[in-house]
Every structure is written in structure tokens, then in C-alpha cells.
Nucleic acid binder design. Structure first.
Lengths: 229, 229
DNA sequence: ACAAAAGTGTTGTGTTTACACCCATGT
DNA sequence: ACATGGGTGTAAACACAACACTTTTGT
């Protein structure tokens, strides 16, 4: 290896902003640290990258350890590399965000975490390390991507109502949308599959259930179609 | 330092996609490697990140060494971390892109480069390492950002004509634009300062010169104005 | 019968596109 | 006088925003 040893003093981690959507609220999964530094404070789940591990594998590994989930939406956002961002040494971290359907999910605290829980995004004011900064950046990315790519569906169960979808967009974008205009827009994109099925046991007119039609979307995309809400 | 030594086997670099615009063509600055691996092949300029150096400083340092330029547009794009992307060891690299006005610029080959030159982006087919992939990713980012942020001006001299600006957008976006519609759009944004000055010595009707009005843009932005071409 | 959320169209306004000719300068 | 790029307006198509009432179910 011709690269001088001077350069192997830096460690490398990933941090994972795991978004979920529950009771019309946008949430993220946080761990409570069992160890110093920042013992007993809430932090993003993350880990060091193994020397023989593909960078993109590390956040997948973290996510699986926490939730058991695989093959969910996960994308790199940015890399944070201030010299003093970790009090114990030089650690450069790559931030990823993932979108999961949090229903029936029972996340488990692992390794140096003493607790794990969903936190409402809009109520988080501080986090360990520079994790608040990282979360904010991931949220910005989510806000901008959710309008130009069909990723919102990842946060919902497979079958959902149009109102649930609208609630989701409102939670992510942080603003309310006009019901009729929203429905016209989303239906005009032609990527929702009508399940001819309805909600049951609700104390009001039951809503129709829809499903994201990925095949149709991929097909349209290959012909130049652009998803835009 | 509580982080085990297992994790200090990875080195870290930055690579810099430096865009310039010249004769209506979008170009990037490449170095020809003087050393193995990939000796005599063209590559992105880059360097390892010093252990006590803020990550964001590294690409600035590289850019300054090459061109003497400071305070130019420079932004992080993504981090590439496949295990085998560097044949000599584990090197994770963070890609940045910068936009410079290449007129009167005399870049110098430095350290392990034997040559340096501007290459037309659309003619580049292969580069050392995974640098073609990195370049493509930066180009995608540029394409999308140039439409929603006033960064195109960074590639032009301070005073420019509307046709030069249109040529620039056409080169970046890779498609031609309607002259009248382009002018209506850009003028309606209200961020160009009319210099009441004209081209000289051209064999046709001389064009008016404009300048990007950064103050006015920042001001409008703070009131919710959105730049969009 | 009431409460609660689902579902549905129209109209005005603003934005985008398509398109062709005259103007000022240098040679 | 000719070649070269600079500069300008209008109309049609389309997209977006604003807005209120009826329907279906459970209690």
C-alpha cells in the first residue's frame, strides 16, 4: 500500500435518519446512548464503517440490526467532516436517510444504546454530537425529493387512502394542501392503482384504498414521464 | 480515544470536479497522472484529507494549488466508498464540484500530475479510478441546481451578454432554448443589472452587457423569492 | 339525527410555449 | 451590400389556485 500511514488516523462512520409516518406525524427513530460521550442523550443510530465493507452497506447493516428491515428505501445525503465534531477523535460521518413503514415495527436497542424510540420530527430540538444538523439536512433532502420522486409511498402501508397520502405530504412539506387540487394532481399522474376496496369499521364514509403502481411508474419514466407534485 | 484501532485502516480523499465554460462549451479541469496506478491517464484532481483538516477545506486547498483561486463556488456532491475503488488500498472519497470563470486562468500541474488541461465534458468517455462515475454525478447535480439557483453566473465573466448566458444554460442542460422565452424569463426574475454598456469590436450589432445583482437576489430571496429557470 | 371524514367541478389567473422579422455593426 | 448575431411581441394552450356542498358510514 503506497499511501503513507499519516492518513489512517481518521475513522469513518455512517448515521442513519430513519423516517416513519404515524398518526399523521412525521417521526424519526432515535437511540438513547448508553455510553459516553453524550450518555443518556438521544442520537441518530449509526456505526463505524468496517475496513472491508462497502460504504453503502453500513447504513443497511445498522437499519437491519435496529428494525430487522431489509430492502427499504435508503439514500446517501451528505458527509460531515468538521475536525471536532466527535469529542473522542477524528470521525467523518456519512449521513443516510431511509423511509420505512413504521406500522408493526418493533425496533430493538442494540450495542451501545440503552433505549430506542420514535420521536416526532418537529419536536426535536437537540441531539447528541452534530446530529441535529444532520437530521435537518436529511429533512431538507426529503422535502425536496418527495416532490419530484414517488418516495412518499415508502412511508405508508401498501394500501392507503388518498387522505393518508395527503396527510403525509402535508407532514413532510410542513404546509397544508387543497384536497381537491391534491387529488386531481395525484390521480392525473396515473401511478395509483385503484384497489376497488374500502376502509372498514370507520365512523364515517369509508375511503377507497389505493396502491402505488411501481411498474407503471417505471414504464412511464422510461418514456420521459416526470413525477412532480 | 475509545474507538478501536481496527477502524483506522481507511484513508480519505476528496475529488474535485471543476467546471469551466469556454467557447460555448462546458469543460472540466483534469490532470494527467504522473504515477501509478493509472499513470498517464486523465483523472480528477484530488488529494487525501489531512487528519487535522476540516473536510470542506481539502477541496479548497486542491483548487487553490491548481488554479490559485479562492472564494469560488464549491459544493459537496456525494461520497464514494466501494471497497475496491482504489487499487492500492481502501480509500473513501468525497466528491465536490466547483464553478470557475476559466478566462485568464492558467492552471498548473502539481505534485503527482504531469499535465493539466481543460476537457470538454461531452467528449470525456473514460477517466482513472471511478472518476467518470463521479464526474457524471456532479454533472447531474449541476444540471439540477443551475435551474433552481443562480449559480450559472459563476461560470461567466462578471459582465456578460444574454446570449452568452443562454449558451451557458444550453451547454449545461444539453438542450437548446428559445431565445425570446429565455430572455423574458431571465429578465422577469429581476436579478440582472443592466450595465448600460455594450460589446466592442464585434462584426454585428453589439450586445448589451449585464451583471448578476447578488444583493438584489439575496434580498428577494429573504422575502421568499425563488429563482427558477 | 348527528358527527366525521370522503368525494367531487368550475372558473379565473398566471405561466409556458411556439413562432418571424427588423436592427446595428464590421468587412 | 452583405454577413452576423442582437433584439423584440403576441396569441393559444396549459397548469395552478381558489373555492362549498353532497355522500356514506357509525353511533
Amino acid at each position: 500500500m503506497s499511501i503513507g500511514n499519516t492518513f489512517f488516523k481518521t475513522a469513518f462512520s455512517v448515521d442513519n435518519v430513519i423516517f416513519g409516518f404515524d398518526q399523521s406525524l412525521l417521526k424519526i427513530l432515535l437511540i438513547k446512548r448508553a455510553e459516553r460521550p453524550f450518555k443518556d442523550e438521544w442520537a441518530l443510530p449509526g456505526d463505524l464503517v468496517y475496513p472491508d465493507e462497502h460504504l453503502d452497506n453500513a447504513p443497511k447493516r445498522v437499519l437491519k440490526e435496529l428494525t430487522g428491515l431489509e430492502n427499504v428505501f435508503l439514500e446517501q445525503v451528505a458527509t460531515f467532516g468538521k475536525v471536532d465534531r466527535h469529542p473522542k477523535g477524528r470521525v467523518i460521518t456519512v449521513a443516510y436517510y431511509s423511509l420505512v413503514n413504521s406500522a408493526n415495527l418493533n425496533p430493538k436497542a442494540y450495542s451501545f444504546a440503552e433505549d430506542i424510540a420514535w420521536h416526532e420530527v418537529s419536536k426535536i430540538t437537540t441531539l447528541a454530537f452534530d446530529h441535529k444538523l444532520i437530521m435537518d439536512r436529511c429533512l431538507e433532502t426529503l422535502k425536496s425529493k418527495v416532490r419530484s420522486q414517488p418516495i412518499g409511498f415508502e412511508l405508508l402501508p401498501q394500501k392507503f387512502t388518498l387522505s393518508e397520502l395527503q396527510d403525509l405530504y402535508e407532514a413532510v412539506l410542513g404546509k397544508s394542501l387543497d384536497k381537491r387540487n391534491f387529488r386531481k394532481k395525484i390521480m392525473s399522474l396515473g401511478v395509483l392503482l385503484d384497489q376497488e376496496e374500502y376502509q372498514q369499521g370507520v365512523a364515517h364514509r369509508p375511503a377507497k384504498l389505493f396502491q402505488f403502481d411501481r411498474l407503471r411508474y417505471e414504464d412511464a419514466k422510461s418514456r420521459g414521464f416526470i413525477f412532480e407534485i
